[in-house]
């Protein structure tokens, strides 16, 4: 499953739905909506791969994840028009993902997943990935705005629509702030 469905949250959801006896149709639809946020990431990456072959783009987009996207965008000049560099980041991350799935299935029972700070490991990773995206003051503002939006949206809407909505709105506000600043000068 980890080879073909490269999406953690969807896998957990699918397992929960399967155990409740829900048929495959609704599970596939739910998976689709959970992963809509990738629309935004794919759009952002597209700026750096203008005119590349569809085969290359297909390969890159099949392996797009929150994490590899964040690593790539922490230094976009490195991946710009260098599909093999992005592919490298993604391959390492996918190998680790599949290895982790196998390892977890084989040895998961040996340790208590609530021990040794494990619940906070992924959160720490994302905090660091967040911090390395901050490259100018505007990013800091957008972080605060997006933080507030995401909490409100998660509270107000089911599922994880909040990521997609926050992504669109907070970026819109970001560009508005940037332009307002430019007008003053």
């Amino acid at each position: 499953m980890s080879i073909l469905v490269y999406a953690g949250a969807s896998q957990f959801l699918a397992i929960e739905m399967i155990s409740k006896g829900i048929p495959w149709g609704p599970i596939v639809i739910a998976t689709f909506f959970i992963n809509l946020r990738h629309l935004l990431m794919s759009s952002t990456l597209s700026l750096h791969f203008k005119g590349h072959r569809l085969r290359t783009l297909g390969l890159l987009s099949a392996q797009l994840t929150d994490e590899s996207f964040a690593v790539a965008m922490s230094n976009p000049s490195k991946i710009s028009n260098r599909p093999s560099y992005l592919f490298g980041i993604q391959m390492i991350s996918q190998i680790a993902w599949v290895a982790g799935s196998v390892g977890g299935a084989l040895f998961g029972r040996l340790i208590d997943h609530k021990e040794y700070g494990i619940p906070f490991a992924l959160s720490s990773l994302f905090i660091c990935l967040l911090v390395i995206q901050i490259k100018k003051v505007h990013h800091l503002w957008v972080m605060v705005i997006a933080g507030i939006f995401s909490i409100v949206f998660k509270w107000a809407f089911p599922g994880n629509w909040y990521i997609l909505l926050t992504g669109i709105l907070a970026s819109g506000i970001g560009i508005a702030i940037e332009m307002a600043g430019r007008d003053k000068k």
Binding site: D66, A70, M73, F126, L130, M143, S150, G167, A170, G174
Partner: peptide, 25 residues
Amino acid sequence: KRVKEGLDYIPISILSAIVFPILFF
């Protein structure tokens, strides 16, 4: 052009949207 510039804020927005709800839910 504006959309392109807006995409510059996508990484920070999405990662904030992943991190902050973890801390406040």
